[in-house]
Simulated scan of single mutants.
Amino acid sequence: MSSRSEAGPAEDLRTKLDHLTLSRKEGLKRLAEAPVRPQPELLSRRQIKALGEAALADYNRGRRKWHANLGPLHTPQMAALHEDLWDIVDSNDQDGDKVKGGIALDAFPGLGKTTAVLAFAKKFHRREIAEAGEYTDDGFERWPVCRVGLTANTGMRDFNRAILEFYGHPGRFRGTAADFGYRALDSVLSSEAKLLIVDDLHFLRWRNRSGVEVSNHFKYIANEFPVTLLMIGVGLKKRGLFDEGEDFEDAIVAQTGRRTTRLGMDPFTVKPEQGRRNWRDMLLAIEQRVVLAGKHPGMIADELSDYLFARSTGHIGSLMTLINRGCQKAVRTGAELLDEELLSTVKNDAAADEARRELELALETGKMTSRPKGRRGKAA
């Protein structure tokens, strides 16, 4: 088992991710360029008992960090989303006289939208740096991706200032909305950014003045900024982002929808056989990553398949929360495995807990199963 002193600069970079903020370019770069976290060695119960006090504390500390960061898992939903994103982003590599199409990722909470987009942003950042280098021809640092987040009170000035905050622009403290806009455009141009991610778009109140201002500003970005605008949110269709509308303000918002491709992400389902296979493949991937002395083949993918589907309702965010917390308890209590008894003591998010009972009844009565053909009856 490697000691901490042997980790070197790569582990130091990974450790800094504890303190990163994705609202600044340095944080996004660290996320994109940090090395893959090494999986802790899987020790038996006897080997764990043989560890000294300091070695045991170090081993468990490594497992805590590992289990808290098991993802991202490359699910079919993420793979399909990435294919669409590559198609759209690469097709936007047009000359400056052409308006670039935008993207709106619109899906329910807990489906891994932001995680999937950040995984794509990492790949895109690395590709652009590998192909074009860390510096532009004019000698500026190249930042292929810019990410900003919105709040319910975000107006055009605040949005532009958020872009300046991302770049650490010295002119981000004072100025009008127009001043900030020109500085934001200059930052994007000088860094040769190609992807602008706007997260939490659902926080914006589209039908008030700020919402119309920012929507209109999105049109300006599509016209003037050489970037693909990627918006992430919940219920964007219901909020009118894609509507034609009847009055003037509706039409302004609809301009954004006309230039935007809507993408989504779905929860796991166990109704068709392929859905059950996808669910099992994901559980197998999780099982391979779990570092518990009592882990055994089928511990998660067979014995806990129905239970985990009911507890998570097919939402990967709820599933990973439950697995993470279960692993932390299994290490802390010395149980060193995951089973229904242990997981029943672990609290999950409120939405999953409220929706689980109906699924539990269907699974318990045999009206539904999460296990594919050939694996049914394998649960303990």
Rank of each mutant, 00 (worst) to 15 (best):
V227Q: 12
G155D: 15
R126C: 07
A54N: 06
L292C: 00
V227Y: 02
L70T: 04
F120M: 04
W206R: 06
G71K: 01
P35K: 15
R14S: 08
I129G: 03
K123S: 10
S190E: 12
L51K: 02
H217P: 05
D18A: 13
A132M: 05
T269S: 12
D87A: 12
R127H: 14
F309L: 01
L42F: 14
G112K: 01
F180W: 09
Q274R: 13
L230Y: 04
A79G: 00
D199I: 02
D306A: 12
S210R: 14
P109Q: 08
D243M: 01
G101V: 00
R325F: 10
V188P: 01
E6T: 04
A152M: 02
A177D: 10
S215D: 03
F124S: 09
G149E: 12
G139W: 02
D138T: 12
G110A: 06
G181I: 01
K113F: 03
W86V: 05
D243Y: 10
P109S: 13
I232H: 00
D58L: 10
L22Y: 15
N153K: 05
L51R: 11
A50M: 12
K367A: 13
T260G: 06
A301Q: 05
R161H: 01
G110R: 07
T75C: 00
G175Q: 10
T228F: 09
I300E: 06
L73G: 02
N348E: 01
D266T: 09
P272D: 13
E354P: 02
E134M: 07
A350V: 10
R325M: 08
P109D: 02
G133F: 12
W66F: 02
A351M: 10
K113W: 00
G233D: 00
E83P: 06
D302Y: 14
G326P: 02
L73T: 06
D138R: 14
F120S: 05
G211E: 08
D247Y: 05
R64Y: 11
M368I: 10
L111C: 03
F268H: 05
R63F: 07
D199T: 08
T321E: 12
A380G: 05
P272T: 08
I88Y: 04
K122I: 03
R239Y: 01
R277T: 03
I286S: 07
